[in-house]
């Protein structure tokens, strides 16, 4: 469980988050949606202990990410930052292998190799394992970085806009994979999404943010109403249903 109490964050003198208080339950996919500049990425960074809030508290499964040793934090929560556009010449297997670093700190064992294999398979990277990251397509690269986050084997995976720069097919595949992981692997996934329909189709819970505050938080089915979306995005939406799934369309 992630418990956030009265969290404020400022970048220099610019306030970004204004008193966030919420609880995210274990299990399933929680999507953070909201317009640009709502503070979604910042909230993710605060939860993962990478950005220190100016006030308020964060607890992940009871631990304070700002005071526990780095290594323990990295075995509780893994963050994939937005578009790791870094053109690295690491091989895919080497990159995914660094996800195991919090566990072995430089001396990988057989368990680490098994986890790397599992991560490569889970993200369909077996054939690419020996390839250099800088020779991959954007979608493959994104998968390799998410596989690294997965190999970190934390109960919480935080993903900052992982669908960026993915075409519809790869975006769908990735959401389906994450959905399966949240079920089969009991991972709790918190994901920043710009595509509301990706959230509508795959997320169990949705947190809607605007101007550094949480406007609404509920199960996907309950939250996705034209009224809420209009308030969040300042633009009118229609809610349709297609094959039993909600679909929202900006009017």
């Amino acid at each position: 469980m992630i418990e956030i109490a009265d969290l404020h964050y400022s970048a220099g003198h610019t306030p970004i988050l204004h008193g966030i208080t919420t609880t995210l339950e274990r299990g399933g996919i929680t999507a953070l949606i909201g317009p640009n500049g709502a503070g979604k990425s910042t909230l993710l960074h605060c939860i993962s202990g990478l950005e220190k809030p100016s006030s308020g508290s964060v607890r992940i499964d009871g631990i304070d990410p700002f005071t526990v040793p780095h290594r323990q934090r990295a075995r509780t929560v893994a963050l994939l930052q937005q578009s790791p556009a870094l053109v690295s010449r690491l091989k895919v297997r080497e990159l995914v292998g660094f996800g195991r670093w919090p566990h072995h700190q430089g001396r990988p064992g057989p368990e680490d190799a098994a986890q790397i294999d599992r991560a490569l398979t889970a993200f369909a990277l077996d054939d690419l394992a020996g390839r250099s990251i800088d020779t991959l397509s954007g979608g493959q690269r994104q998968r390799a970085f998410i596989a690294m986050t997965y190999a970190q084997d934390t109960p919480w995976m935080l993903l900052d806009e992982p669908l960026n720069a993915l075409d519809p097919r790869h975006a769908r595949d990735l959401m389906a994979r994450l959905h399966a992981l949240s079920r089969d692997d009991k991972r709790s996934i918190v994901i920043v999404l710009h595509d509301i329909n990706a959230a509508a189709g795959w997320a169990d819970h949705i947190v809607a943010m605007k101007d550094g505050r949480i406007l609404a938080q509920d199960s996907s089915a309950a939250l996705l109403t034209p009224e809420v979306l209009r308030e969040v995005f300042d633009t009118p939406f229609d809610l349709l249903h297609h094959k039993g799934r909600p679909v929202v369309v900006a009017r």
Partner: peptide, 10 residues
């Protein structure tokens, strides 16, 4: 890998 990713790895 960059500061955020490095710190996320502990």
């Amino acid at each position: 890998l960059g500061e955020a990713q490095a710190r996320s790895l502990g």
